[in-house]
């Protein structure tokens, strides 16, 4: 089955071990684990509201440990919005993001189009103050030079996680997306979605 046209796809990139999975899991499931397990690729779904309709928010948690350009490009070409995660405790992880951002820029076309694509630069692990290598100001400056938005988060302390995704969806100007739907109740949303599928 082809992907649903009203899917809204968010792709999370970042070097290995910066906390992509933790961030996504914190958002999706509200949990945090100390485990240390590499991801190959995971996709999570969430029902959200989009243009007053129901649509699926797909969050793709990519791997930081493999450099498979084809996979990366595919994710980028299919993604609508991007979260670039680095760890405040590793300058290296911030530098790793630049090539990814460049691929996004190339894949997504010119400057005008790029500006309309929601991209968040995220400094995770902001709770680890003693190990911090990248200051918030530096991250902010980097984000500015890339023309994207910036936020510091901590999946561990649940700092700014929800805000991150809310902000990301707010950046999407082509649709009116919000996370609010969940409050309305699960069943209803699901049913609507099903109907939609049947129509299609």
């Amino acid at each position: 089955m082809p992907e649903q046209s009203n899917d809204y796809r968010v792709v999370v990139f970042g070097a290995g071990g910066v906390g992509k999975s933790s961030l996504v899991l914190r958002f999706v499931k509200g949990t945090f684990r100390e485990s240390y397990i590499p991801t190959i690729e995971d996709t999570y779904r969430q029902v959200i509201s989009c243009n007053k309709n129901i649509c699926t928010l797909q969050i793709t948690d990519t791997t930081g440990s493999h450099q498979f350009p084809a996979m990366q490009r595919l994710s980028i070409s299919k993604g609508h919005a991007f979260i670039l995660v680095y760890s405040c405790t590793s300058r290296q992880s911030l530098e790793e993001l630049r090539p990814i951002w460049e691929v996004i820029r190339e894949t997504k076309g010119g400057a005008n189009e790029l500006a309309s694509i929601p991209i968040m630069l995220v400094g995770n692990k902001c709770d680890e103050t003693e190990n911090r290598e990248v200051s918030a100001a530096e991250g902010e400056a980097e984000a500015k030079s890339w023309g994207c938005h910036f936020m510091e988060t901590s999946a561990k302390t649940n700092h700014n996680v929800k805000e991150l995704f809310a902000e990301l969806l707010n950046l999407e100007k082509n649709r009116n997306i919000s996370l609010q739907l969940e409050k309305k109740g699960q069943l209803k949303g699901t049913r609507k979605l099903k109907e939609k599928c049947m129509v299609m």
């Binding site: 649903q4 690729e41 996709t43 350009p69 996979m71």
Partner: peptide
């Protein structure tokens, strides 16, 4: 060719 992606679970779940 560039190394093939090991897996792309992204949309596979759709099916």
């Amino acid at each position: 060719p560039t190394p093939a992606p090991r897996s792309i679970p992204i949309y596979a779940e759709d099916a």
